[in-house]
């Protein structure tokens, strides 16, 4: 079955010719390969958020109707957001807490904007397994610490939405936001 393997014509060219030919092959392959990169990138990038999704990446929230002691729920990037107008008593009770004893040590000042301490804006997503805690709407249970209470596995959050009791590991997340005016914020 041994057959005459066709000789590759390398010997026909001088050593300079052979090197030239290899360079040409490498150049061609490299150039073509370089072209694959932007194509591959396009195929990957199309899965990134599209322009309409990015447009909703930030929302404006009007805080005018929220009275002290009240909170409103809204939606941002598909997740619930609680915006609470803290009363002076709630602010005081949050400040009284020994921060070092907290599971997730944070001061109220770290979770609110300077000069707007009465506004507590957090995600309404329990940091345990993601349920929406109660306490934002009128009449809902607020848990043992007067903040929010998650009915799924019994996490209690205080007036600064910090975890005090229950399985949640972290305080309710504070999203990035800016005050556009004393009564309006842009979240995200």
């Amino acid at each position: 079955m041994a057959s005459e393997v066709r000789q590759a014509p390398v010997e026909n060219l001088g050593s300079g010719g052979e090197r030239r030919r290899d360079f040409l092959y490498i150049a061609t392959a490299a150039f073509a390969g370089a072209g694959v990169v932007p194509v591959a990138w396009s195929l990957v990038n199309q899965m990134n958020p599209s322009a309409d999704v990015l447009a909703l990446a930030s929302i404006d929230l009007d805080l005018t109707p929220v009275q002290p002691g009240q909170a409103i729920k809204t939606s941002w990037r598909g997740k619930p957001v609680f915006a609470r107008h803290l009363t002076p008593e709630e602010i005081a009770s949050a400040k009284k807490v020994d921060v070092a004893s907290l599971r997730d040590p944070q001061k109220l000042e770290d979770r609110t904007k300077a000069g707007n301490e009465q506004w507590l804006i957090t995600l309404g997503v329990c940091t345990h397994l993601g349920c929406v805690p109660l306490g934002a709407a009128e009449g809902e249970v607020r848990g043992d610490f007067g903040g929010y209470f998650c009915p799924c596995h019994g996490s209690h959050y205080d007036t600064a939405a910090r975890i005090r009791k229950g399985p949640a590991p972290k305080n309710l997340e504070v999203p990035p936001y800016q005050f556009k005016s004393p009564t309006s914020v842009t979240i995200g």
Partner: peptide
């Protein structure tokens, strides 16, 4: 433009490969 250069290189490669 990229494809023209790539095809040009490809053509030169083809001529070299087929020379024999």
């Amino acid at each position: 433009l990229f494809l023209i250069v790539m095809t040009g290189l490809g053509y030169l490669t083809y001529r070299k490969v087929w020379a024999d």
